[in-house]
Amino acid sequence: MVRHAPVYAPDAAVSMTMRRVLLALSPGIVVYTGFFGWGLPVQLALATVAALGFEAVMLKLRGRPVAVHIGDYSAVVAAWLLVICLPPLLPWWMTLLAVFFAVVIAKHLYGGLGYNPFNPAMVGYAVLLVSFPREMTQWIPLEGYVIPGFGETLAVIFGGSVVSHLDGLSTATPLDHFKHSSSAAPAIMGTLAGKGWEWISLCWLVGGLWLAYTRTLDWRIPLSLLLTVGLFAVGLALGSNNPAWQNPLFHLLSGGTLFAAFFIATDPVTASTTQAGRWLYAAGIGLLAMVIRVWGGYPDGFAFAVLLMNLSAPMIDYLTSPRAYGHK
């Protein structure tokens, strides 16, 4: 067997890309856990096991070599991205359902890694948000409540028990709260986007910048998305009477803005692939998310914004394909 060129040792691999994403998520997960307790790590473990299980079954059913493809970490990445968006004390079966929709429906039924038109994590999230709106908006407030311990967390997630002092879980995200309140959002850390959330957001920013630095993601996507949100927020601050919208920084640091910019919109499979297209694609997500945030019925709109732009990505690609060398 004659071997032709190219001969070289490749320095990129799908599994490495995925492992880098997991690594970049880690600081945010640690800080998240520090603020809100064991909910997130428990959910992550649950979702990881479930995702790998679904992945293995689907690969087997599709007749693909399980060992080769399960080692690409793509299912774990989808599961982690999904869980990070969910309230940490969600009942276990809801998490399982979301992972099922993400891995089985959104990913494998559309042809598996590389072929899914919709972001699997956002499909799982959207399914829960539409089906269980009450549970999906029960976030742990940091003030006035004791963060549940490990045992308590397990009891809530798996036992369905409602621990007495958590009875009145906050049903409003900070965004929801500010949207309907008349008080101005104070511009200091800790109260800007809801206690704890700015620090977590900054961790996403750090992890995301590292991914951009290592070329794991295309910097155009987060930059375009954040610019769009920022410009929209400045316009809102200038043009709106709502005191909650007066500080543009609020929109960048609260809700899922940074997380979506660096970890959700950058999923290469479902994003636009051309350079010009990525500017447009991410700007579209930022714009739609802000429209939903400000005028829509949901407190935050990144999931739907991402899914809508996923739908537009092939057309954006087609329209923004570069002019080949030597062509007019």
Partner: peptide
């Protein structure tokens, strides 16, 4: 040793690196 790390072919994840480096500015994925 020149090609020792080469693994098998995996599905395309549409990362767009091929288009970024293409000297003829083609769309390798398409």
């Amino acid at each position: 040793a020149m090609s020792q790390d080469a693994q098998g072919e995996m599905p395309c994840i549409r990362c767009g690196e091929c288009a970024r480096v293409c000297p003829a500015r083609l769309a390798p994925q398409q």
